[in-house]
Nucleic acid binder design. Structure first.
Length: 241
DNA sequence: TAGGCCATCTGGTCCT
DNA sequence: AGGACCAGATGGCCTA
């Protein structure tokens, strides 16, 4: 926090710089920020004007605290929203499981939405096929009786309840899971039980290249979406307590 | 110990 | 004018 020194002094310097462009004292405060320099060249910003008006040190301090508090609250709200997102993700939610990082949460959410959309399309196609195969015996319900939303059941969808909870694992990949999961599907239970991991189930049952929601597949997508970030991407996401 | 992730502070910019 | 949003900087904590 070396640069957080003497607010009053900095503001005074800013004002001086605006009054006299040849003043080199701006370098002491803003040598690290080109954006600040650009702002100085444009003239007094609202904030600078406001802070310059605060002749009293205590008044200036109060203003700073107020702004800091607002920003803190804004970031807390953002984090709360991210927590809410984590809760509905098809991933371990147990108390002993480390939290997904922010970037991992967002990318997993994106993949999950893609997966849900594809599952929905697949379901629509299956329903359409059924009605075409048995046009007489199976008749579509009247339009006014049809539900407004897509059916909730999807045999190929690794829903929140389907995806296993792995406690205490810092690096989780669907291929690494040793637990045998019994897929609750009346139509395909015979062969589905032999697929031991969610990843295998996913790859077996997905008709299209739907992204798998497991952490490692998600990281693969991170590499595609963010070729430059992070500079040295781990092979699996890290988790926090 | 290096690197990743995070919270916080800070000033600029934009919007209402 | 005030607040929201954004990005840069910094330091702390944790893990491999």
């Amino acid at each position: 926090m070396e640069n957080r020194v003497n607010l009053k002094h900095c503001v005074e310097q800013m004002v001086n710089v605006d009054g006299d462009e040849s003043d080199s004292s701006q370098e002491s405060c803003y040598s690290t920020s080109t954006r600040c320099k650009q702002g100085i060249q444009k003239g007094l910003s609202n904030l600078k004007r406001k802070m310059a008006e605060c002749v009293d040190e205590a008044e200036l301090q109060d203003l700073r605290l107020k702004i800091n508090s607002r920003e803190r609250r804004r970031m807390h709200d953002l984090n709360s929203a991210l927590d809410g997102l984590r809760e509905v993700m098809p991933y371990a939610n147990g108390p002993s499981v480390r939290k997904l990082s922010k970037i991992a949460t967002l990318l997993l959410a994106k993949n999950y939405i893609l997966m849900l959309n594809s599952s929905l399309d697949e379901m629509k196609k299956l329903v359409s096929d059924v009605y075409q195969t048995h046009p007489i015996r199976t008749r579509a319900p009247p339009a006014h009786l049809q539900p407004p939303h897509a059916p909730q059941f999807s045999p190929s969808l690794p829903s929140v309840s389907n995806v296993p909870t792995v406690s205490g694992a810092s690096h989780v990949h669907c291929r690494d899971l040793e637990t045998i999961h019994t897929v609750v599907s009346k139509d395909s239970s015979s062969h589905m039980t032999s697929l031991v991991t969610p990843h295998e189930r996913h790859m077996f049952t997905s008709r299209w290249p739907v992204p798998c929601a497991c952490s490692n597949c998600m990281i693969d997508s991170m590499r595609i979406s963010y070729p430059k970030y992070p500079p040295s991407l781990p092979t699996a996401p890290t988790f926090h307590k």
